[in-house]
Amino acid sequence: MLLKPSLAPAFRVCFRSVPFLFLLGFLLALGGFLFARESKPEAANSAQLEEEPTIAGSGGIENHFQPYFGHDEDIHLDKTPPRLIMGLDLNRMGWTYNCMECHTHVEDIRYHREQKFEHENINLEHGNNRYCLNCHHPDNRNAFVDYDGSEIAEPNVTLLCAKCHGPKYRDWKAGVHGRKNGYWDLSQGIQYKLHCIQCHDPHSPAFKPMKPLPPPLYPSRAPAPKH
């Protein structure tokens, strides 16, 4: 016997009880999950961001990297994307919801505008878009919907915006709309292009007013300003 005789009955009692087995199973699963998370290969921040939102599958857009956070050689410059400053509601750093966890169970709310549960504080002010499913895919809520009802994967959200905002998409692709970071000389480094939703809240896309940083001091000997 491996176990000492005195300990054996106690173990037998434990293993017989069903709740304990559940608990054990849960702990094992949790441990496995944590282990899997930690054993992920260390990748550059940008690469992680590129990978993480791909719940709905299908690759990213050609060469349009997400910008990086955290480690950077320019720590003295604040390169946080505008919507992270203002509070990105859905796609926070390193965390993505799997929408289908709920949406497979909840009854179909396809043509209703009631905002329940997670969606209570969404303020929909996007032109004539009154329906969630104008953009979100009816069958796979992790993806967006294209003209023909096919899916647009979450990392390719720019393609969704391009359905209506063609000229903006054209300018963005040309590198004239939206912020870019990194290298202008592509032979020397990577250029990061912010995606639409990193600056614009898709539910209320108008750029929000912000507090300006402090002005230069008004010269003390100059006459008082007229403004």
Binding site: D78, I85, R179, K180, G182, Y183, W184, D185, G189, C199
Partner: peptide, 11 residues
């Protein structure tokens, strides 16, 4: 090959 500082931060 990098962008100027003012461009990097423009929101």
């Amino acid at each position: 090959g990098k962008y100027p500082a003012c461009m990097e931060v423009c929101p």
